[in-house]
Design a protein around this nucleic acid. Structure first.
Lengths: 212, 212
DNA sequence: TAGATTGTTAATCGATTAACAATC
DNA sequence: TAGATTGTTAATCGATTAACAATC
């Protein structure tokens, strides 16, 4: 690995896309693939793909391409997917349930270990053997279960408190779905998904294209 | 509006963020706000905010700041949120239900007008008076209800078929949650949300920060 | 007027694209 | 060997940051 090179965020965000398509072509029985072919399938230029991959090492064979199985293993290692991270979901509204039932996470090696909510009707229920705990127990249970990544799916007003409790429990990664800016210590990795952006940008472009 | 300037995608994606925080400060009773103050609340530099806004017109007053109410109206118009878009959700699994119940969409002026699924148990059910139809009726119902934006929340294997049917019904905006690349005509606006990116990137950074 | 804050231009930074030598 | 395809360097493009004149 070339430690001296700074890897751009854009590159990191493309790796999971490569990872998924490679597993998909592997299922098709493909053993060797070119950057050209990967690119065609996901709509990214082959140059971009080669540059992204080359910043982590020489994974390909000149004149041949990339061995699918090896590349999957290499990207998986780069992304740390072998870690088997324990994750917890905070807020079991519709979105929380949806995320708890999302199969892709399991296939990426993430292990849902706990869920939290304030609603007594939800506390005690389970999904695939994983229990919903009262949010008052968030810090204690998170420490007990060695939670490393917390998913925030509570309303905006409760999101900062949830983040604070997760951080207090030693969680170092937060995936936030609440539409609000969270303050977390520098050493905590925070990724926020803002669903209103996607829909609003469609509205923006639609407004203009229909005018024509 | 300065039609000759090309607006960057990054700028468009920040407008919904400005829009939300402005409505929030309006609720607090704030009538005038500076770019400095907006920036502090959402973690964006004031220069960036001024530049973004200035590419659409002169919305501020030098030496004063921005009138919150006017700026909300202006950004809303830029984003086309006054259009009252009719949207349909295809695929009423956990994610589809979550999106159907997401309140923020209504507050942005989007109008959920139809939902579709293959499951006979789901067909006929309603959310806030909006019905779930069988996916075979997608094209017909979408035309009847004048659907302009389609949300794809079906499994990857069914996503392209859903997109094709939406396009055939005249839908010009697609918001895709299926983890697959969709092919749509050039005049159709496609925005895809890839949830595995966020979680994988947390894993990437966590793997490195914990090594130290 | 003096202080504050915008809008805009110039400078910097970062990411993508193009080109091509290396080599399987 | 000839054809194919990678990895890397250079060129281009686009977005952010800095600086400051304009003006409320």
């Amino acid at each position: 690995m070339k430690e001296h090179i700074v890897i751009s965020k854009a590159t990191i965000d493309r790796l999971p896309v490569y990872f998924r398509i490679l597993r998909s072509v592997q299922d098709e029985g493909v053993e060797i693939i070119s950057s050209e072919d990967i690119g065609r399938r996901i709509g990214i230029t082959p140059e971009q793909i080669r540059k992204d991959l080359a910043s982590f090492g020489e994974f390909g064979k000149k004149g041949v391409g990339y061995y699918v199985r090896d590349l999957i293993r290499n990207i998986g290692e780069i992304l740390g997917l072998h870690h088997d991270w324990n994750i917890a979901i905070v807020g079991m509204g519709h979105l929380g349930w949806a995320l708890a039932n999302y199969r892709n996470f399991g296939s990426l090696g993430f292990n849902l270990a706990a869920m939290f909510d304030v609603d007594p009707d939800k506390v005690g229920r389970t999904i695939n053997g994983v229990e919903v705990y009262h949010i008052e127990c968030l810090q204690q249970i998170s420490m007990e279960k060695d939670i490393q990544i917390g998913v925030i799916a509570v309303p905006a007003a409760q999101a900062q408190a949830a983040a604070d409790a997760l951080v207090a429990a030693g969680v170092r990664g937060i995936w936030n779905f609440a539409p609000i800016r969270l303050n977390v210590p520098e050493d905590v990795r925070l990724v926020s998904e803002d669903l209103s952006i996607g829909l609003s940008s469609i509205s923006y472009y639609l407004t203009r294209s229909t005018k024509k």
